[in-house]
Design a binder for these strands. Structure first.
Length: 206
DNA sequence: GACCAGGCACATC
DNA sequence: GATGTGCATGGT
């Protein structure tokens, strides 16, 4: 495995990123892709079209992503928020202040810290560092943070040490996941981890 | 057949 | 505020 650009979050539109962010909760990405393909094939991957879809039909189309009834409800909750506050427009939404957006997203049922930051970073291009299980594992293995550090604590750690650049956050997160998968899954102590943290600004080179 | 995968809400203590 | 449990699929 190489650790260059990871092409993290391949998606055709920002709306597709949002849908993917909700569908991928506790689910392998390959299962999400099928659901996205089913929606895309029916030209349903827009806020307007998805909002018109009956809940049961939406659930059926995203079945492959697991917990489909729950996720259908969560997608509709997000759409209700987007329609109600930003007239269904991610463009309008993306112009709001970052902290306000995070607060609003966390208030949507089904959107927790990781999903909120994924939407902020990958869909809206905002500098929100996404923390996931791999991120925490790699950090605690390197003794950069305690293993029980909370989500906000881990996010603050990166946002404190890195320039506030969405592209850098994107690449850093992708690299952490790649490293976590390759080295930290089954090893209690990973002496061979190639990641060299340079938290003053540059991503590690692959 | 168990375990995992790019979480979250809710109940309970 | 910490911990446990349901959600549910597809891959290994």
């Amino acid at each position: 495995m190489r650790f260059g650009p990871q092409h993290w979050w391949p998606a055709r539109t920002r709306f597709e990123v949002v849908v993917g962010a909700i569908l991928t909760q506790n689910t392998a990405w390959s299962n999400v892709e099928r659901a996205l393909a089913a929606l895309r094939g029916r030209r349903l991957l827009t806020a307007a079209r998805l909002s018109e879809l009956p809940p049961g039909r939406l659930a059926g189309l995203i079945r492959s992503s697991g917990t489909f009834r729950v996720k259908a409800r969560r997608l509709r909750a997000f759409l209700a928020y987007l329609n109600g506050r930003y007239q269904g427009s991610l463009d309008r939404m993306s112009r709001a202040p970052l902290e306000a957006l995070r607060r609003e997203l966390l208030a949507v049922p089904g959107i927790g810290p990781e999903t909120a930051d994924s939407i902020l970073l990958y869909a809206l291009g905002r500098p929100a560092f996404v923390v996931d299980a791999y991120t925490r594992r790699v950090l605690s293995r390197h003794r950069l943070l305690p293993h029980d550090a909370g989500y906000q604590e881990v996010r603050a750690f990166f946002e404190r040490h890195l320039p506030s650049d969405p592209r850098l956050f994107n690449e850093y997160h992708a690299l952490l996941v790649a490293v976590g998968k390759a080295y930290c899954r089954s090893r209690p102590h990973c002496g061979e981890c190639p990641l060299r943290f340079d938290l003053r600004g540059r991503p590690p080179r692959g």
